Simulated assay, not measured.
Amino acid sequence: MPESSDPRWRYGVALFPLPPLLQLVASAGLTTFASVDFTSTTGSEGGVLVGIVAFALIVLGSWSAVVLSAAVAASLYLDARAIARHERDAPSRFLAGGVGVVYVAAGADLPFLYAVSVPAIAYYLYRRRRYVPL
């Protein structure tokens, strides 16, 4: 069975806006967690409950961002590689892999790198239409 010229990896690449949003959720959780007063002796359990929810947002938001960043980076590389098999002037899979590495670094611990990697991935998806129509 011949390989399709329309690789389905683009669906993984299209998830690229989610990790920055998950990082924002984790940051909001961190801000909320830092503002909770755990030393209050008024007997209110609301502050403790807010602290637990904020901590859960921090953990789930950050780890989800890391996992999704890795999935987007792998999809980006595999999509560029699949297109390169069928198109002569396709985007460089090595450049796509480099953008993917920067994107994973942004998701892991350096969120300022999203300023470089998110526009690069958006441009990749925009230019991808030239090789494989959506």
Rank of each mutant, 00 (worst) to 15 (best):
M1V: 12
M1H: 14
S4E: 08
Y11H: 11
A14I: 03
A14Q: 09
P17L: 07
P17D: 05
L18F: 12
L18G: 00
L18Q: 10
P19I: 06
P20T: 05
L21Q: 14
Q23A: 10
V25S: 06
S27C: 09
A28H: 03
G29D: 03
L30R: 10
T31C: 08
A34I: 05
S35Y: 10
V36G: 03
D37S: 12
D37R: 10
D37G: 03
T41K: 13
G46T: 10
V48L: 12
L49H: 06
L49G: 02
V50G: 03
G51Y: 01
I52C: 09
A56Y: 07
A56F: 09
L57R: 03
I58A: 05
V59E: 05
L60P: 00
G61Y: 01
S62I: 08
S62H: 14
V66M: 14
V66S: 06
V67A: 14
V67R: 13
L68F: 12
A70H: 10
A71D: 08
A71H: 11
V72F: 05
V72Q: 00
V72E: 00
A74M: 08
L78S: 12
A80H: 01
A80T: 00
R81K: 15
A82H: 02
A82M: 05
I83E: 07
I83C: 06
D89S: 09
A90E: 00
A90P: 04
A90K: 01
P91N: 08
L95E: 14
G97H: 05
G98R: 02
G98C: 12
V99H: 01
G100N: 01
V101R: 00
V101T: 15
V101G: 09
V101W: 01
V102I: 15
Y103D: 08
A105E: 03
G107N: 02
A108V: 15
D109L: 14
D109W: 15
L110S: 11
F112D: 12
F112P: 01
S117K: 03
S117D: 08
V118T: 13
A120K: 01
I121P: 02
I121Y: 00
A122N: 08
Y123I: 07
R127T: 12
R129A: 13
R130P: 00
P133D: 14
L134Q: 13
